[in-house]
Amino acid sequence: MTQPRTDTLEQALAQNRFEWWDSLRELGRELKRDKPGLIGVILITSLVLMAVFAPYISPHDPSAQDLTARLAPPVWYDKGTWNHILGTDHLGRDVLSRSIHGARVSLWVGTAVVLCAGGFGVVMGLMAGYLGGRTDAFIMRWIDTQVAFPGLLLALIILAVIGPSLTTVVVVLSLNGWMVYGRMTRSAVLSIRQSPYVEAAEVVGCRWPRILFRHILPNLTSPLLTLAILEFARIVLAEAALSFLGLGIQPPATSWGLDVAMGKNYMFMAWWLVTIPGCAIAVTVLAINLVASWLRLISDPQEREKQYARHMAGVMRKNLLAALEKEKPPEAL
């Protein structure tokens, strides 16, 4: 209890309002100490910025063709020009611009799918875990059935029937990915609902939606966050794979997977057509994984303390010794 004493509860509440800002700053300080995590966060932030400001920073229109400059190599080759820093493809479109715009699709699809699949999966898992009985049996058998059904086949069927588009990709990937959230949420709910504070809420007379969303869900955030971020990486790859197969994003829109697919025909003449978007995919997935592993560390209180002690023990020890020295009475034995 380090805060100054206040007289009334209202005052104390008002004083407390900005606590989250402090914990955010604390988080930032810890991130600075974890180098891989920091790199991951920087990469993701720049990817997001790149995606948001794509029209302003990309040198060319990604779909503008220039048949006079087909398959131009990157700038460091003799034939390369600064006009097309990373070269052009078989239709003379600028590779750099396409890659920048490709980030938009990847991140958009990733976010949308994580929100849709995560939202649905978490609600299903909460209900299955808390209500139990028939609801539980029904939801879990549904999940089992869907997990047993080959995901790619489902995707192919849906895409063949509806026809490929950005929205369909999101729908297909969400349908394929919600089960993992459902299962994880259910098992976490089963353990949390045993805890006395949930029983306390029941005894007090809370109805089940309040118990689920007010008492159980907030205590699930850190494992769910880690799962969502890892799923995000998987979705980025899945979108690229679908687009590579021609089932995802359709030209003239761009996507990293689509670019790799088109570039593969010219692999031996123009290596940069596959390599650049390929690298973009790899870097994104790597960055997300770095952030995820840092988050996992941070969300484990014990591990977080250890990490903190390793970095801060020296400074803290010095401060403590100085404080003790000041306190020591001269006549003490």
Binding site: E305, A313, R317
Partner: peptide, 12 residues
């Protein structure tokens, strides 16, 4: 024995 925690040094 000290424990170095985020809350401060616990002088156990």
């Amino acid at each position: 024995v000290n424990f170095y925690t985020r809350g401060g040094v616990v002088q156990a």
